[in-house]
Design a binder for these strands. Structure first.
Length: 576
RNA sequence: GGGCCUGUAGCUCAAUGGUUAGAGCAGGGCGCUCAUAACGCCUUGGUUGGGGGUUCGAGUCCCUCCGGGCCUACCA
């Protein structure tokens, strides 16, 4: 039994996430966590809301609420939706938790002690009307290059030229529109990750099995142009983790907070501490997952994220953890494998939270149960390149794979049994070479499925699982119990006994993809034996003759053309 | 501008430099009648974006051109 630590990239707090966010991190992480638990491993699966930063403050202001209150509400909303999608987090934390405040400050103190923090004075744009410093992209003005009048301070979206806020003509605040801006001097802390370039490169190059998407992004940031740059880790904001040197004040940094990208990954660790405290456990309970000197030496740590998150997880966060161990006193667990994803597009364009384009988690659940979405998203996960959601494709996949191949298999077996033998596993008869062949075929494909799941080959795993379902239909076609029942009822009984057991087996191995249907199938089969079919032949004898079951309702109703057209038009524009 | 990824059947995707480039869906044919008009079997369909090169052998490696996407560090 192995110990596996799994984290999903943290969803940002400022709104309900869309399906693209879901498939890029939380959903595949859940698939992996469920599979590893099903195989009997000890799993710690962590996620949390990422609550700090300027967008959170602005979203709260827009909602007319204090930011702490806004975040608390949105956390509950997101937690509820995660629950609706059957995301099996051991803990769904908050980056604003006391645990994260404490740990973030501790890490900063360690980095300071390591000599890895520098203080830099820089000039930034301050808006008097807004009473805040403005990040570059929150300053708008006329592009000096092309004349576009809504160019942002970091880049002109019209001509793509990189800009500095001071380049803009007639600059104004993108928040209030105010032109009462001034440049102020402000002091910030920088993480001296440039000095850790070689150790970061060595570490990344030692990871030969990582997806090319992960390593290519990391190496580009390390070595492209001037190479890895030191990074500012503080901001002039109210909402966030106050800058402190561990328990002590940090002179000169009063009123400043850590940058959200500094405290967010630390929340992976802090959320595990939140979990321990919520369980009434001591610090040793979470430290055995995160500290190699306190039990984490045998932990395998896997991170899931969209490609936009890769630089922070391959460079800044490891630099933080390595730096915090400068004297060997705090060996924090570094990631062992990073599974990164491309983007999911929506019907010819991008999903967009800010523009309300696409299907969002709450809307999805209002249309169909989670399993439909889980199956489509996972079987079309954007692993090798960006992929695209279309309603036609969604309808086809759900109807063919779930309703026809799997759902109908369950129906035809249970209903046939009910009409010929009653709602009980029939007795008598013996299986023969045909059944032995089925066991051999199942075994080969299940072993293959296991390898793909362990390798986090999400789409290929889905394909293999579907192929395993198909074996059931092939067997029935060949065995034809509806024919044998007329000539040799005992043989039909043996065939149906096997088929009923096959349904239970399918529920067990399909559970990581479609947990709700798996549960309802198990309930119908009146079984709670979720043991993994290491021995397929034995697994197909678990439901003994005489075992009563209930013929389940239709497992997956089909998506009709009318529904599809309705949804297609309803979700064609932007969310109001 | 620079970098990275990507381009394979009508669609969505596979294929350690090594038989005749494979699946699912869609299309065509046959079978079955237990089942959600479901299932099974057979089948049509490819100049692997274009061009050049390396090699006994290239979808795969190199060069070049074309198309799509992403990143480029103060949104996260």
């Amino acid at each position: 039994m192995a110990r596996i630590l799994i984290t999903s990239a943290l969803p940002y707090i400022n709104g309900i996430k869309h399906l693209g966010n879901l498939v890029g991190s939380q959903l595949p992480a859940d698939l992996y966590a469920r599979y590893m638990r099903a195989r009997g491993h000890e799993v710690m699966f962590i996620c949390a809301t990422d609550e700090h930063g300027t967008p959170a403050e602005l979203a709260a202001a827009k909602a007319g609420k204090p930011v702490a209150e806004y975040c608390a509400e949105m956390h509950d909303v997101q937690a509820e939706l995660a629950n609706g999608f059957k995301l099996s987090f051991d803990h769904y934390g908050r980056s604003s938790s006391p645990e994260n405040h404490q740990l973030t400050q501790h890490m900063a103190g360690r980095l300071k002690a390591a000599g890895l923090i520098s203080e830099v004075s820089e000039k930034q744009v301050y808006s008097n009307a807004d009473g805040r410093f403005l990040p570059d992209r929150y300053i708008e003005g006329t592009c000096p290059n092309c004349g576009y009048d809504r160019a942002r301070g970091d880049q002109c979206e019209n001509c793509t030229k990189q800009l500095d806020p001071t380049d803009l003509i007639n600059p104004r605040s993108a928040i209030s529109g105010s032109t009462d801006l001034e440049v102020r001097e402000t002091k910030h802390l920088f993480l001296r990750q440039k000095s850790m370039r070689d150790s970061l490169r060595d570490w990344i190059k030692s990871k030969h099995d990582w997806p090319i998407l992960t390593t290519s992004i990391a190496l580009k940031w390390l070595d492209d142009g001037d190479g890895l740059q030191d990074r500012g880790i503080t901001r002039d904001l109210d909402w966030g983790v106050a800058v402190r040197d561990g328990d002590a004040p940090w002179p000169g940094m009063e009123g400043k907070v850590f940058y959200v990208w500094f405290d967010a990954p630390i929340e992976y660790i802090a959320a595990t501490a939140e979990w321990a405290h919520a369980q009434g456990l001591g610090d040793d309970a979470w430290e055995r997952w995160w500290r190699e000197d306190k039990g984490a030496a045998d932990v395998r740590y896997v991170e899931f994220m969209g490609k936009d998150n890769v630089p922070f997880h391959t460079l800044s966060f490891p630099a933080t953890l390595m730096g915090a161990n400068f004297d060997g006193a705090e060996p924090w667990k570094l990631v062992d494998y990073i599974k990164s994803f491309n983007y999911l597009n929506y019907d010819g364009g991008q999903f967009s939270t800010s523009q309300g384009r696409g299907v969002f988690m709450d809307q999805a659940l209002s249309l169909l149960p989670a399993d439909y979405w889980r199956w489509w998203l996972l079987s079309h996960a954007p692993e090798s390149s960006d992929s695209e959601f279309t309603w036609e494709n969604f309808q086809t996949s759900a109807n063919k794979d779930l309703a026809d191949v799997l759902g109908n298999l369950v129906s035809r077996v249970t209903k046939f049994c009910r009409s010929k033998f009653g709602e009980v596993v029939p007795e008598g008869g013996e299986t023969g070479p045909r059944e032995a062949q089925l066991v051999a075929d199942l075994t080969a494909k299940i072993r293959s499925y296991e390898q793909l799941m362990e390798a986090m080959e999400v789409r290929k795993s889905a394909n293999e699982l579907r192929a395993i379902w198909v074996l059931g239909n092939e067997y029935l076609q060949e065995a034809a119990p509806w024919s044998t029942f007329k000539t040799d009822p005992a043989l039909a009984a043996a065939q149906i006994r096997l088929a009923l057991n096959l349904i239970r087996l399918y529920a067990v191995i399909s559970q990581p993809f479609i947990p709700e249907a798996a549960q309802s199938t198990m309930s119908a089969m009146a079984s709670d034996d979720w043991s993994w079919p290491d021995d397929v032949a034995a697994a197909l004898q678990l439901l003994p003759a005489g075992h009563a079951f209930t013929t389940p309702e239709v497992l997956f109703t089909k998506i009709t053309d009318e529904q599809r057209e309705d949804w297609q038009s309803r979700f064609a524009g932007v969310r109001s």
